[in-house]
Structures are given as C-alpha cells and as structure tokens.
Simulated scan of single mutants.
Amino acid sequence: MISVFCKFYENLNASSLAELNTVYTQNVRFIDPVGEHNGLEALHSYFDNLLENCTTCHFTLHQTQLVEQHGFVTWTMAFSHPKLINGKTLCLEGCSEIRFSADQKVCFQRDYYDLGAMLYEHLPVLGPAIKWLKRRLNQ
C-alpha cells in the first residue's frame, strides 16, 4: 500500500491527478503548512492549483516506514515557480505522515516542511527579513 503512494508522488503531474482516487479515500483528510483539505474533491483542487502554478514539481522519496496502517515517508521536492527567485529550481525537504484505511488507500496525510524555506524566504521583502531573523536566532 505504501508503494502505491510512493509511485504516485514520484510520477506526480497534472495528468496523474486522474489517479488520485486510486491512492486516496473519498473522505481523505490532508493537512500541510498551507492548510487543511477535506475530501478527495478538495484535495484534487488543491493539487491542481499547485501544479498549475509551478513550472516544475518533482518528488524524490527517501525513507519509508510502515507499521500496520500508519506510515512515514521522507522526501525532497524540487520545484520552480515563475514568481520565486526568477523561476529557479528550489529544493524542499519534508516528511509525510500517512494513515491507510481498510481498503489500503490513504485516509489521512499530514505533510511537515518549512513553509518559510518553500515560500517566504524567496519573496523580495520578506525573504531578507526572515533570513536575518534566522541568523539572529542561531547566534
């Protein structure tokens, strides 16, 4: 069951969203630093919007762990967005907590990643301020 999840993310693109129902339950609960999305239709809209706005988006999966119906996957997302640092490719490290239903589909997913590293640090006004603050906190 975790292999289906991994394969989906390794091949994620706008056309693969048609396969979302083979990976997720109808009532899936998906949480990440951007927000919470409940239900397959809401998740499809969220992914569709993300992929539409990115020039590239690719996941490399690293470690997987599954105990009964509960698992974790670590990953790196390489993405580019035309409004972030002139469309250059950025890499973001993250981890997904996933829970599977009895029919071996994902019914819950929570993604953990640094939203600042993904977005805020690359914005013209906020970026330098956040980087300065991080340096100050590390002294």
Rank of each mutant, 00 (worst) to 15 (best):
M1P: 15
M1G: 15
I2M: 10
S3K: 14
V4A: 11
F5K: 06
F5C: 05
C6F: 01
K7H: 12
K7R: 11
K7W: 00
F8Q: 06
F8P: 02
F8G: 01
Y9I: 07
Y9S: 02
E10V: 00
E10Y: 01
S16A: 13
L17A: 12
A18H: 12
A18S: 14
L20D: 07
N21K: 15
N21E: 13
T22E: 15
T22M: 08
V23R: 02
V23C: 14
Y24L: 12
Y24M: 12
T25M: 10
T25G: 08
Q26Y: 03
N27K: 10
V28F: 05
R29L: 14
F30N: 06
D32L: 03
P33E: 08
V34D: 06
V34H: 05
E36M: 08
N38M: 03
N38F: 02
G39A: 06
G39F: 02
L40W: 03
L40S: 05
E41Y: 03
E41A: 14
E41M: 08
A42K: 13
H44V: 00
H44M: 07
S45D: 11
S45M: 07
S45K: 15
S45I: 11
Y46E: 13
D48K: 15
N49M: 12
N49L: 13
N49E: 13
L50Q: 15
L51S: 07
N53E: 12
C54H: 13
T56P: 03
C57V: 09
C57I: 09
H58E: 15
L61Y: 02
H62N: 12
H62M: 10
Q63Y: 06
T64C: 09
Q65T: 10
Q65W: 00
Q65I: 09
L66S: 05
V67S: 07
H70P: 01
H70C: 13
F72A: 07
F72S: 04
V73W: 05
V73R: 03
T74V: 02
T74W: 12
W75D: 09
T76M: 00
M77C: 15
A78E: 14
F79I: 04
P82G: 09
P82R: 11
K83F: 14
L84Y: 05
I85E: 11
N86Y: 08
N86F: 11
G87Y: 05
G87A: 04
K88H: 08
K88F: 02
K88Y: 02
L90W: 03
C91A: 08
E93A: 10
E93T: 03
E93D: 14
S96H: 03
I98D: 02
I98G: 02
R99C: 13
F100N: 04
S101Y: 05
S101M: 04
A102D: 13
C107A: 08
F108N: 00
F108R: 09
F108H: 15
Q109E: 15
D111T: 08
Y113G: 04
L115R: 14
G116N: 15
A117H: 11
L119H: 02
L119E: 03
E121Y: 01
H122A: 09
H122V: 05
L123E: 09
L123A: 02
P124I: 11
P124G: 06
L126A: 14
G127N: 07
P128C: 06
A129K: 10
A129I: 01
I130R: 07
K131M: 09
K131R: 14
K131H: 02
W132L: 14
W132R: 07
L133G: 03
K134V: 06
R136E: 11
R136N: 06
L137C: 09
L137Q: 14
L137S: 04
Q139W: 11
Q139S: 06
